[in-house]
Amino acid sequence: MTTDLTDEQLVEMAIAENPQAFGEIVKRWERKIFALCFGMLSREEEAKDAAQETFIAAFRNLKNFRGDAKVSSWLHRIAVNQCLTTMRRLKTRSESFLDDEDESADKIFVAPSGKMPSRTAEQNERVAIVRQAVNALPTDLRQIIVMKEFEEMTFQEISDALDVPLSTVKSRLYTGLKQLRMKLERTPVEIV
């Protein structure tokens, strides 16, 4: 019954003390929000916690939801803020939780002589380099790349979610991809 309703209608029902309505919202958006959190934080546990905190915060602030905004944009804004908070906390906890990966990113993967590296190891190394390169991007560029590549959102959806013009989304994505390409080109790892 609730599956036919829009997100905004579900929020109105949730405000009117219908917990199932908010459950439907969670069901619709949990995967995308988790993807965003994972793309931003690159860590499974932190991403899970951030997604959890995002929906808790949304539930507690249902009354503050503005009717003129989209639920997707509202949830994404909360999720991004939650990710930024988590990143600050992790950075404070250990100078920078990316430092370790910086060191690994600087390493050049060289296959042992006389022995063909396994595809899994090569893949893992490549993935680690890509993850590190994405993490090194500025937050606004990284956010849009993650929303596009992980959540597979359209430009218009990203524009609505971030409340920025469509042209801004495209230009940020272009800049982000360009910077990411330059970072990856500095590493002699074959990009499949």
């Binding site: 993807a35 539930f59 893992n124 490549r126 390409r181 990009i191």
Partner: peptide
């Protein structure tokens, strides 16, 4: 190529992950 690299990262690390069960604490409800 860049997109392919990011896509590979996603497939290798994210797509394998199960969606976390979002539990709203009863106290907040």
């Amino acid at each position: 190529f860049t997109r392919s690299a990011v896509h590979e990262w996603r497939v290798e690390e994210f797509d394998k992950l199960a969606t976390p069960v979002i539990e709203l604490p009863s106290s907040s409800i």
